[in-house]
Amino acid sequence: MLDTTPEANAISEALRTVFPRGVVEGLERLTGGASRSTWRCSVDRAPYVVQRQRGDTNERDMHVEASVLEAAAAAGVPVPRVVGCVTDADGTTSLVTRYVDGETIARRILRDDRYATARSALTRQLGEAIARVHSIDPVDVPGLEHADALGTTRDRLDELGQPHPTFELAFRWLDANRPPGSDRLAVVHGDYRLGNVIVDERGVAAVLDWELVHLGDPVEDLGWLCSPAWRFGSPLPVAGVGHRGELLDAYAAVSGVEVDPDVLLWWEVFAIVRWGVICIGQADAHRSGAARSHELAAIGRRVCETEHDLFLTLEGRW
């Protein structure tokens, strides 16, 4: 069925700008989030993905993300190729990329037989790909901001007005054990984990979901990748597929940077707190009426999982 909503019409218009003579078929909405929607279509029988920002949000312009994707491709990171980035008269931007085939659902990647070979290669490939992301010269991607990760997360928790004694104990440890400032201010993906990576039978096919990309300490991406929330029930720490040593070796082989395991631990602890605060924020979106949903409400009761993870991780260390 032809989608004729105003949003679909605007995307068709953007596609005409990118492909003036192209035959667009099968435009179909895949997901719709609070700040952007994602669509699929074919142009002259080749598959493409279109991401479109909502006009009324204060999100960073997607042209910045498009330039990061291009810089990442140039640095050897597997990413969907950017074919166009178009801003309408009303200021809403659509980003058009080639479609990359494969799986993003973490539980399938971690359990299905068809990904067994991929799983054996994933830890190394994830380490290599993120090392290449961190090799991008920030000068080549203007428009990225540097934020103090810990300060931003603490401010967000205060803004939500749901103080948690466990998080205060963790902040106390994070303040006291803060690693010496990294001398590298790197391009940080910001949400590097299974779910945001397309995996095929050979492993990483593309790194997706760059909307949180920013400048910061590169170890932030490694800590997030090792965080318990992204193991999906697996006992293995790196994305549910591997061990930290293999990740750090692969990272060092590409970047020449040996990450101190204590620094990785600091960022893992930070990642647990960050995920806990995100969970509080999801429940708050329901409670405030911004998005009524029992799914969001339920996430509020997952905060204690992150508190438990903090006690397990910090046991004997504080």
Partner: peptide, 23 residues
Amino acid sequence: VRDKLLVANPRYLDARAPDIGDL
């Protein structure tokens, strides 16, 4: 936190090993 998990997700208490062995 243990009491909260007993209500929210009791299996989380058993299922999670500390898995910090390689740090």
